[in-house]
């Protein structure tokens, strides 16, 4: 069997090193090797968004990234959204407004919603819906998810006018 590749990367701001085989996806390594199981597998083909992460600041489906590609890159997962004990306003609004039912799509939705608000702090409902179109949710019908994102945007805007 071929030797494993050594990969140095940054995960949620912390330097991390791991060994992997080329066919291993970043999702598999995050979940099975690094025990960062907040990132979920819903489809493995980039169609559901449950494994949404950021890679050098841009959104990606971790199921469609080879772990070896992460060499020298910076990865963000749901585990890195809260700062210490302080929840991100999106996390707070998701809780307050019951924007999750089963909760399995929630990590991906939060990572995608945060990327949206970082880029567009005051999105319209339409913009939220299109920005989150890559995150399937089968429980909520999206209503409360969209409202929570819009309300989080207002709260963030209020914090830093």
């Amino acid at each position: 069997m071929a030797r494993k590749s050594h990969v140095s990367t940054i995960v949620n701001g912390e330097p991390i090193e791991f060994l992997c085989d080329p066919p291993q996806t970043l999702l598999e390594v995050l979940r099975e090797e690094l025990q960062l199981t907040g990132t979920k597998e819903g489809c493995g083909t980039g169609d559901c968004g449950a494994c949404t992460i950021t890679l050098d600041g841009r959104l990606a489906c971790a199921c469609l990234v080879l772990a070896v590609e992460a060499e020298g890159r910076s990865i963000g997962t749901v585990e890195g959204i809260a700062s210490g004990e302080h929840l991100h306003p999106l996390q707070k609004k998701f809780l307050e407004e019951a924007a999750l039912q089963c909760g399995v799509c929630t990590p991906g939705l939060l990572v995608a919603a945060k990327a949206l608000l970082d880029r567009n702090p005051q999105p319209t409902e339409q913009e939220v819906r299109y920005a989150l179109a890559g995150n399937l949710c089968r429980c909520t019908g999206y209503d409360k998810v969209v409202r929570a994102v819009l309300d989080a945007a207002v709260e963030i805007g209020g914090e830093s006018p």
Binding site: R58, C61, L116, G134
Partner: peptide
Amino acid sequence: IGSEQIQGR
């Protein structure tokens, strides 16, 4: 082409 996640790659 695809979602925001796909667009990133």
